[in-house]
Amino acid sequence: MVLFIEQALNGLQYGMMLFLMAAGLTLVFGVMGLINLAHGSLYMVGAFACAWVAAATGSFFLGLVASLVAAAVAGALVEVVVIRRLYHRDHLDQVLATFALILVFSEGTRWLFGSFPLYLTLPPVLSGAVMLPGGLQYPLFRLAIIGIGAVVALGLFFLINRTRLGIRIRAGEADREMIAALGVNIERLYTIVFALGAALAGLAGALVGTIQSVQVGMGEPVLILAFVVIIIGGIGSIKGALIGALLVGMTDVLGKALLPGLFARVMVGSDAATVGSALASMLIYILMALVLLVRPQGLYGQRG
């Protein structure tokens, strides 16, 4: 039972991290109609910025701030220089241009930081494990990630539902021409939304980079999962991104933890465990296919 709770917490933490990635992706698509493959590169930029600043200043928290700032700046820059020209193009051009951006970002980072992975050290306040009720020890930093994810989710809901910027974002999603006609500086709005999404991705990169390692190409596997999340949740919906991220995180971690054992129990033969683990690694894609069968626009999607 304790094992199950620990795995569920792992799933929750994974889901929260995916949410930070997916939120930006889904916002950018919802408001600008743009598919951005380079979102994973912004995740990587955040992680490298955090590692570099933390090493230079000795402060992990400054590193976290740097990850937000660096990713936001990189995002804004990319938006102004490249992305802006793509809003009126078809999705094929967007995919290709942002794929090209991944190559530029990855090799640029390799040029700046080399091919060696970087490692971050946690400050004593955040390292080690805490005792949870029920006698379970759990790493403090992973709990912190869950907390940060929850705070960001609340903040985003507040931003979109309660602020002027949020009203404009929602208006932009509903009718792009209309909002421009109302005198809102649409170019600036787009840059802000893009930078906001980038900052969240950068934060996710810094947090995950701290647990694992900071290296070139780290954003790519996460990017694909974030796509799965927003397909399941419905493109453009923050709420969908949150629900989708938690579903994917839980399904993946619990599937990998439980399926091999489950198969070994109901199936005979040495193949049981491998069938189980093969199935577990495909589980989230099966989940996605099922959602698509029932609701092609995703759980909370608007468009068909």
Partner: peptide, 23 residues
């Protein structure tokens, strides 16, 4: 549209992970 792009991508990933985990 964009769903098609991502769905085809995700299905390919599914087969990719199957190939990885099928010993």
């Amino acid at each position: 549209g964009v769903y098609f792009i991502m769905v085809t991508l995700a299905f390919a990933q599914m087969l990719f992970y199957f190939a990885i985990s099928w010993p």
